[in-house]
Measured scan of single mutants.
Amino acid sequence: MASQGTKRSYEQMETDGERQNATEIRASVGKMIGGIGRFYIQMCTELKLSDYEGRLIQNSLTIERMVLSAFDERRNKYLEEHPSAGKDPKKTGGPIYRRVNGKWMRELILYDKEEIRRIWRQANNGDDATAGLTHMMIWHSNLNDATYQRTRALVRTGMDPRMCSLMQGSTLPRRSGAAGAAVKGVGTMVMELVRMIKRGINDRNFWRGENGRKTRIAYERMCNILKGKFQTAAQKAMMDQVRESRNPGNAEFEDLTFLARSALILRGSVAHKSCLPACVYGPAVASGYDFEREGYSLVGIDPFRLLQNSQVYSLIRPNENPAHKSQLVWMACHSAAFEDLRVLSFIKGTKVLPRGKLSTRGVQIASNENMETMESSTLELRSRYWAIRTRSGGNTNQQRASAGQISIQPTFSVQRNLPFDRTTIMAAFNGNTEGRTSDMRTEIIRMMESARPEDVSFQGRGVFELSDEKAASPIVPSFDMSNEGSYFFGDNAEEYDN
């Protein structure tokens, strides 16, 4: 783990906690998980779902989305002020799938948001429990990260689609708070800032007046979040320049895209947490497990152990491969979309394939898809080993990566060399080191050039047997250095459309 220093740990961010010791953190995270579980059980009762239907990941996603929508204050306010045809701002819903006479049927349900809020609060001892809501947002974000390569979004903001390893959390809503900021990748933060800068260039009043003052505060806050992700002084200094700019424009845009590229080699610290679907927490609570009393951590053995003992089902389209669908969801559960496939294969105990080789589309089923041909199958979400999630980018030494994705962002704290394609990355730096950030740029390029592919990161860190909950005997895996390590390699994943 990167030293926490003055930073709060993510469990504290996750639970809005002030400084807590490890036991208190485990208890408050457990409380959050228990609340999600209780809410899910109650919703299944309301909807009269069978046990099997309640364990269907598509039903879980609909129920999670309903509660997130019920608590989305800004959108609710907007919907009330701008009524649109056929949208009731006070209601929320989605597809629920039921097994009827041996076939899967889709039923569109509609609930009062007020009623959903009441059920959620009741499951969370009367609190709004925003930490639990954020947790579900991060699960949705991790699922998107594993399912889609955001080529269009990258290109629109002047970045290269091969930089997708920097895009963790790119679909997280803005209201996801400190826990959300911690899991956002460098590219995601750059993209958010670039969008602001572009608006400022096109709209003279963007930075002016009372609204402009708020915009400015948001801009500086985002700059500080991004600065905190960088691990070298030169990158941090460049972020200070971007933040202090009187009138952010093209120079800042250039600096930010430069920094994003540099992060492929001088990786930023991005938190990883295993956020599971509500249909995993519900049955665990129903079986009598007391998360608050037992304590829970999002970055240790607990999620692995929970998945070892969970039964989750998914709808499967006619030509999809259930094992591939399982891999997709497994990666999402562990926030591992940008991790090295060699490491993932070792931990999972079966070969993890790149996205383009998977015969599976996303987990969600569109409303126009034919239910007649839908089957369902068990998702295999178990693992051979477990490993500690990392909050750091690993040290800054790398190795060759593949054509589709030119770097990785480690999820697990496991000893290995970190793949990246130096030639491709360095070719993108057209040696432009003039301007006010020239000395920093020169320094950053120097550090990137001296990074050695064969150097090892996370020295001495290994994986653990599932029986080793105290992480007492690390097993340090050895990897084939020459092997392909990137998930979005030469990829044809669908595009994420909101």
Results as ranks from 00 to 15, higher is better:
F338K: 11
F420I: 10
K227Y: 14
N498K: 10
W139S: 13
V100A: 10
G394N: 11
R317G: 08
G295M: 08
N368Y: 08
I408S: 14
D88V: 08
F420L: 08
G94P: 02
V29Y: 04
S383V: 12
L143E: 11
I444H: 04
S310F: 11
P283C: 15
R267M: 11
Q415C: 14
E24G: 02
T92F: 04
N397T: 15
C44T: 13
G212L: 09
I316L: 14
S314W: 03
I138H: 05
E369W: 10
V270S: 12
S335P: 09
L166P: 07
W120N: 07
R382G: 12
N483W: 11
S170L: 11
A27H: 13
K351E: 08
D468T: 05
H140N: 08
S407C: 05
K77D: 09
E454V: 12
T433C: 08
M136V: 15
G268A: 13
E244K: 12
V183W: 03
N76H: 14
K273N: 08
R121Y: 02
I41F: 05
V414P: 00
V100L: 15
P410F: 02
M66F: 07
K227W: 05
L56E: 04
A251R: 02
M238D: 08
E210M: 05
E469P: 02
R65Q: 02
N309P: 09
A263W: 05
S314F: 09
P453Y: 06
E114I: 08
Y111K: 04
T396P: 09
S407F: 00
R267E: 03
M13R: 09
E73K: 10
L56C: 08
E369R: 06
L264Q: 06
E107M: 10
F429D: 06
T390A: 09
G93Q: 06
L306M: 15
G30Y: 05
R38H: 14
Q4G: 00
L110F: 12
F338D: 00
D127H: 13
V186H: 03
K103V: 04
M43E: 09
K348G: 07
R98V: 05
I388L: 14
R391G: 08
A336V: 13
E46M: 08
D340W: 05
R106S: 11
M163N: 05
M191Y: 02
I109T: 12
M167F: 12
G404L: 13
L344R: 01
T437K: 12
E46V: 11
D128S: 06
V456R: 10
G37R: 12
G30K: 08
R106H: 15
H140I: 13
R121V: 14
A27L: 13
E11T: 13
R446E: 07
Q409D: 02
H140E: 08
P410D: 03
L276M: 15
S478Y: 15
R221M: 09
S297T: 13
R199F: 13
L56V: 10
L61R: 00
I116R: 01
E114N: 14
Q409W: 03
Q12L: 09
Y78W: 08
G295K: 06
R446H: 03
N430D: 05
R199C: 08
T188W: 07
S287D: 10
K325R: 09
R216P: 02
M43Y: 04
Y313D: 04
I444E: 03
V414F: 05
S170F: 07
F71A: 07
R106P: 01
A286D: 11
Q235T: 03
M13K: 12
S84K: 01
M426W: 01
N309E: 10
S176L: 01
N144H: 07
V155T: 11
M447T: 08
Y487G: 01
G30M: 10
F464D: 02
G404V: 14
D240M: 04
I406K: 04
M238A: 14
D128Q: 10
K91S: 10
Q459S: 14
E380I: 02
A85S: 13
E252A: 08
K7D: 01
E107C: 11
F489T: 02
K198E: 12
N250F: 07
A472H: 15
